[in-house]
Each structure stands twice: as structure tokens, then as C-alpha cells.
Design a protein around this nucleic acid. Sequence first.
DNA 1: TAGATTGTTAATCGATTAACAATC
DNA 2: TAGATTGTTAATCGATTAACAATC
Lengths: 222, 222
Amino acid sequence: MGFLIDRRLQRVEKEISQAVIARLPRYFRYLGELKDQGRERISSRELSRLMHVTASQIRQDLNNFGGFGQQGYGYNVEYLYAEIGKILGLDKTHHLIIIGAGNLGQALANYMNFERRGFIFTGIFDINRELHGKKIRGIRVRPMEEMQRFVRENNIDIAVLTIPKDGAEAAAQKLTEAGIKAIWNFAHMDLDVPEYVQVENVHLSDSLIKLSYMINQYENGK
Amino acid sequence: MGFLIDRRLQRVEKEISQAVIARLPRYFRYLGELKDQGRERISSRELSRLMHVTASQIRQDLNNFGGFGQQGYGYNVEYLYAEIGKILGLDKTHHLIIIGAGNLGQALANYMNFERRGFIFTGIFDINRELHGKKIRGIRVRPMEEMQRFVRENNIDIAVLTIPKDGAEAAAQKLTEAGIKAIWNFAHMDLDVPEYVQVENVHLSDSLIKLSYMINQYENGK
DNA sequence: TAGATTGTTAATCGATTAACAATC
DNA sequence: TAGATTGTTAATCGATTAACAATC
């Protein structure tokens, strides 16, 4: 009987690959649209044609998290949408602050409809005195000195880092100290934070440079 | 002798994988920093420690494009930086317009230092009459109706798409007709354009949702 | 020359696709 | 029940890592 217990202890939560994780938001997006269109069910085959991926991949991806479909029927759109939402943690609310009230910080505050997905925009910070007190989407810009205290007192989960490279590392450090859970990083550098702080990079320059590569390749190729 | 010719004809340009391409801008970024620091040479081993990737991967990646290093020496920083720049097409200038002069469009115009990498910000367009004539980074906002003509007459290579989902597909269509080479797509949807139009998606919502997943996973995991 | 480090081949690992029995 | 379509195993494909001869 010992080996049964051993096997149970041994059973490690199977690691979900980064590739799968990166695809989840896209599934969520397509299912949300199908839901809005009033679609009741969809097969992996039809979804595959819609999303330009293989049906096999869809079924494999979803089965990492559970059997959400039904043989002969497919997937119930509303149910699958809700389940993926839960997997993504979108059934919980997250409190979010923006570090840097410059062009990008302000634009994100106004442009992203954070609340739609349960991200509560709670504060925005900048070192520039002239911006202090200015209201962005109804939230006044605070001095950076108040940031750590604010994170602690308001249980902030996510910091959106939109300050230039020079200050980014120090800000990340301070955010980590204050107990931030995650950083959405727009600074043009890779942050060095402990593994318990989640980081998602949005390297816009890298992205545009990649586009340059693609143009170049296409032109050389023909 | 026939088979020799055959083999030569057969030899297809080896396809560079998407994974490699996605890493190139990051190599470029690190090498730029090393160059600015005055570093003359670097080995794959040291670069690997700096970038947190394997030395093997670095050598494999670079060798897709040529042998830029030297045994016993490593890589010359300035030379490698320049070579990767060429591979990325950054030795050429690209003319770029922004579609949508809203929060994000304006922020990108001001925030991205486009010219630094040879992207010449040439025009910005919006449907909103109130914005027409307003100057963004010295460039006046034009009505959307002028867009196609502008693209043709000014040899525009890249369009930055920052308009809401509803108009995005139609705009992409018009850009394609006008002969655009590439679209940097910030709309929350996947565009359907011919394969000769290069598309690089920046799905900010997807990115933030991925971060939510990571927080959720970490919290459930402990 | 000896030591260092590349370029490249081979081995491994992981992700995607195909196939099909299970089952609604 | 018959047809459809999943969940899942096996096969394939591709990407990463290891190893080492070549060579500066």
C-alpha cells in the first residue's frame, strides 16, 4: 500500500507551459465575442477556423485545466467563457496603481477600461511636482514619496510601471518592499525582482523593432 | 553531377523561427547598452549570464544569420550591435503614421522616441473633427479621409493602429489598399490582412489578463 | 603555444499535431 | 441509435541544450 501513498505524494501539479498561458487571454477574448453574439455552443473545430489554430491545440490547451466540453456537443460558450475567466483570475478584483503620470501613464489610465475586467484604478504617482494634484480619470496624481505607504494601506496588487529606464529599477525595488504582487512593466528594461513578484513586460520598442525585421525580411525575400 | 545541381536548387533559405526573431530585439537592446558602457567584446557565456539565457542559445540564434564571433575572443560588441541592427532593418529609415489621435495615439507620438531608431513620424489621423489641425509633436492631426492619399504620396511604410475595435478592420483594409507595408496593431482584435502586410500585435488587454493569471497561479500555488 | 571560445553537430526536451476510443 | 465531437494517448515536429572539434 505504501506505493499508492508515494504516488499521491509524488504527483506534482503538472506545470502549464508559457505557450499555453499566453494563449489563454486570446481564447477568452474570442469566447467573449461569441457570447456577445449570442452563440450558445461551439466545437473545437469551428473555433479553430475562427482563431486560425488547430482544433487539437484548443482541446489540448483547455484540457490542461479541465474537461469543459462534452462529446458530440462541443463547448458551451457561456460556461467556457466563465471558466477561463476564473482560470485567469478575472473573477477577483485587483487594485492597481500607475507609476509615472507622463504621456503613457495618463494614456493608459484613460484608454484602458481597467474596471471592465475587475482592475480597480486606485492611484497614480509621479516625481514631477507640477503634476501633483492634477486629476487623471478622477484620480489625483500623488508624489512618489507616498507610493509605498499607499500600496500597503490600500492593498495594491498591481503596479503599472511607465517611468523611464533610469528610475524603473529603483521603483520596482520599492514596490517589491511595499508588498506589490505584480508589475506590468513598460520600461525599456528587464526588471530584477524576486520570483514572487510577477512581471509582465510590454517592451514597445522591441515590438516595433520586430516589425522592422518583418518588413525587411519580406522585402529581401521577394 | 546532376544531383549536385539538384541539391543546390533544393536548398531553401532556412526559415528563421518566430522564437529566434522575437529574441533579436532583446539582443540588440543589451548590446546597445554594452556599447554605451564602452565594452569592446563579450563572450556568449558572459552575455548569457547578463540576459539569463543559455550561452548555447545565444550562439545558435546568432549563427542563423552568420558567424559574427571569433574563437577565443568572443563577439566584438560594436560590430555585433551593428550587424544585428542590419538584420533588424534598423539601418534603413521607415516612414510611419498613427491612425487615431486619442489618448494612446497621442501618447505614443510623444512617448516613443521613434526617430532614434529611424522611424520617421510623418502623420497622424483621426475621424474626430475637433482634433483636426491640433499639433502633436509638431505634426497636425489630419482627417481620416486624407489617409490613403497621404500613404501613397509619402511612401508610408508603417501604420500604428490605435483606434477602437469597430473601426480597426476597415482602417486596416484601407491601409492595405493604399500599399502600407506593416501595421503595428493596438486594437483589441486580430486583423485579417493579406500575408504581404506585416502585422505586429500589441494586445494590452491580453497582456494585463496574463498578469492576472500569474498572480492567481502564484497565490493558489502556495 | 596554451587557453578561450566559437560554430556546429548530436542529444534531449518540450510543444504541436494526428488519431481514435470513449461517450454524449 | 447514429453522428458528432470530446478527452487523451501516441507520433511528429521543432526548439533548446549539451558537447566538442575547430580555430583564433
